[in-house]
């Protein structure tokens, strides 16, 4: 059995954290927009930035998976 593939698969579990993080961030952003619709553009900017940062953990997992598989 190819344990390397299993390791790569486990590394991609980091996506869970990113998913939860982006979910929370988006929920809060929706809340904020509902409260203050006039601040939508600002909130959207911050949300995009936060998502890009939260996504990073998933990307780290992806990079590690690729490293395990190919490096």
């Amino acid at each position: 059995m190819d344990l390397v593939a299993l390791g790569a698969g486990i590394a991609v579990f980091t996506g869970i954290g990113a998913g939860i993080g982006i979910g929370i961030a988006t929920a809060k952003a929706v809340d904020a927009v509902a409260r203050q619709p006039e601040a939508e553009s600002k909130i959207m900017k911050l949300l995009l930035l936060g998502c890009a940062l939260a996504e990073a953990t998933a990307i780290y997992g992806f990079v590690v998976a690729i490293m395990i598989k190919f490096a």
Binding site: E55, A56, I59, Y60, F62, V63, I66
Partner: peptide, 13 residues
């Protein structure tokens, strides 16, 4: 490390 990996990983992905 996080700066370079984030950029690299995103573009690679």
């Amino acid at each position: 490390l996080s700066l370079c990996m984030r950029l690299f990983g995103n573009i690679l992905g």
